[in-house]
């Protein structure tokens, strides 16, 4: 009986966290300060899903998916998000609770990188990377262009969501703060996806 109760509690907790996770996904906008409080369980699910797509994006780009290396890359990505989001949030005078908002911004960036990785995985069924690589054959870095385009596509999805969720109240284009954070988010996501599909990630040869 006690076992059944424990299982029931665990299932309920998982369902709550999953609900929190999907709430984060649906409400992800560039105005991260207005996002609801994210429970730790929701953050874990966001990170787990990001790790999964990061793994498959590297798989699709014929990069090493060696377990120990990818584990290191995911931890490095987490540190990158915490540091970059922490630093950026510190410069916004309108953000009151810095740590909570840093977590929210990291969550938005994480969703962006996950989506970017998702666009790379999408190449499996809808080939687009080969075309981009041919376009930028003489460019400085074809793979960096692939990362930038995937990140831009992810940024557009979040942008559309931002417009959808904020337009009823006010014009996003009339709000300079949202535009500044949108531009910063693009930078964070481009760098993040770039790190995922750079051959050696954070450890260039």
């Amino acid at each position: 009986m006690a076992f059944l109760d424990t299982t029931k509690d665990a299932a309920q907790k998982l369902a709550d966290n999953a609900a929190a996770y999907f709430e984060v996904i649906y409400k992800t906008t560039f105005s991260f300060w207005s996002l609801p409080e994210i429970p730790s369980g929701g953050n874990i699910l966001t990170g787990a899903f990001a790790s999964l797509l990061l793994y498959f994006a590297r798989f699709q780009m014929s990069l090493s998916t060696d377990a120990s290396f990818v584990a290191t890359l995911i931890l490095a990505m987490l540190l990158y998000l915490i540091f970059i989001c922490g630093i950026l949030v510190a410069f916004d005078p309108h953000v009151e609770t810095k740590v909570n908002n840093m977590r929210r911004l990291a969550s938005v960036a994480c969703v962006g990188i996950t989506l970017g990785a998702g666009f790379i995985v999408l190449d499996r069924v809808l080939p687009w990377i080969g075309t981009v690589q041919r376009w930028f054959e003489e460019g400085p870095k074809a793979d960096l262009m692939v990362a930038s385009l995937a990140a831009f596509a992810a940024w557009c999805v979040i942008g559309i969501n931002t417009l959808y969720l904020t337009l009823p109240r006010f014009s996003a284009f009339g709000n300079g703060r949202i535009l500044v954070w949108a531009a910063l988010c693009l930078g964070i996501v481009v760098l993040g996806v770039g790190l995922v599909i750079t051959p050696n990630g954070l450890f260039p040869s």
Partner: peptide, 26 residues
């Protein structure tokens, strides 16, 4: 420069799983 970091893992996947690699394909 473009092919730096290509691992056996990635090489195998490109040839067996039809994944992408700028270095190998171009």
């Amino acid at each position: 420069n473009d092919c730096a970091g290509l691992t056996i893992d990635g090489y195998e996947r490109f040839h067996l799983d039809n994944t992408r690699s700028y270095c190998l394909s171009r």
